[in-house]
Design a protein around this nucleic acid. Structure first.
Length: 313
DNA sequence: TTCCAGGTGGCAT
DNA sequence: ATGCCACATGGA
């Protein structure tokens, strides 16, 4: 796989091109529940905040992945984006391995053949999945955007219209800011009342308490989690307020590269009961089955199953 | 009106 | 360790 970095064209324009990228479907990657801030554009590309910039991601079936910087002061670094999209992992091999485990998973993999697990920002993922608990995806997205808009720093301004808005006139609009997830120290200084208009409900307290715990050491421990073993990271995360087994596993899978993490939520319980014959309440059994049967790529298997059951409900 | 959404904290056994 | 249940919010 060859990556080529193009020189800036005009002011503040940068582009990263990866050729020969396989097992990559933007719709599946951005809409399989692992991230909440990438927005689909009318042309099929996605715009979102990541790695300190606002970027546009587009993919052609030939295997050409293009990342354009739309705003932000950070440069596009090939190594960072390669890691973000997990491009060094051979999903073809993993799919072959997992498909041989059982026919149910093989079917789910056929359905979500272009899924990849992102390596997202740990702090943003932590907060996002605290918000996700006992909540639905559209509202999770709204809460995150409101939280960022109200308390986050502006990454940069873009003039591109948001998807969904049916604008007949294609007049250039006023620049719109995209906002970062507010830093731990910022959220740590808030009180629940400050967060009222974000509509987080009872989760507001969890976020503030977790922000205080994380910022207590300047985020050093959270930063170190990637180098920890899965169980060390799990211990640290579940020690934070609002982080239980499910949320911890999501954070580990979607931001720390712990591919064996197997988050069990209502949808996975549904899969495991409807397709694998478990009792809905037997979370214990599901966990150990996943560890033994799916093995080191259990988390990736979980994503195929999650996407599969959710898309055909 | 009731039920549900990528669950967890707090409390009683 | 395990089993309940309250917890805000908004859409179906």
């Amino acid at each position: 796989m060859i990556a080529e970095e193009q020189e800036p064209v005009g002011k503040n324009m940068e582009k990263l091109v990866f050729e020969g990228v396989r097992d990559f479907d933007p719709d599946q990657i951005f809409d399989c529940g692992q991230c909440f801030r990438w927005e689909k554009q009318p042309d099929g590309s996605y715009i979102g905040p990541a790695l300190g910039v606002v970027a546009r991601v587009s993919y052609e079936s030939g295997g050409r992945l293009v990342i354009e910087k739309l705003a932000g002061s950070r440069p596009l670094l090939e190594e960072e984006w390669r890691h973000y999209f997990d491009l060094d992992r051979d999903y073809g091999e993993i799919k072959k391995l997992l498909s041989s485990k059982d026919d149910i998973l093989a079917e789910a993999i056929k359905y979500g053949q272009g899924i990849r697990i992102l390596n997202q920002d740990k702090w943003e993922t932590l907060i996002s999945f605290i918000i996700s608990q006992n909540n639905n995806i559209p509202r999770i997205k709204k809460c995150i955007e409101k939280l960022c808009e109200r308390f986050g720093e502006c990454i940069g301004e873009i003039s591109c219209e948001k998807s969904g808005s049916s604008s007949q006139e294609s007049v250039a609009r006023d620049p719109v800011c995209r906002w970062m997830m507010p830093r731990p120290q910022v959220l740590a200084a808030l009180s629940p009342e400050d967060l009222e208009d974000v509509r987080l409900g009872y989760r507001a307290r969890y976020i503030i308490e977790t922000a205080r715990a994380v910022s207590a050491d300047g985020g050093e421990t959270l930063k170190r989690t990637e180098a920890m073993t899965s169980s060390e990271a799990y211990q640290y995360l579940t020690g934070l307020c609002g982080v239980g087994p499910k949320v911890a596993n999501c954070i580990m899978l979607f931001s720390m590269g712990k591919c064996d993490s197997f988050p069990i939520d209502v949808w996975v319980r549904r899969v495991m009961s409807e397709l694998y014959g478990f009792s809905e309440s037997d979370v214990r059994g599901m966990r150990s089955f996943a560890a033994e049967h799916f093995g080191e790529y259990g988390g990736i298997a979980q994503q195929y199953l999650f996407y599969y059951i959710r898309e055909r409900k």
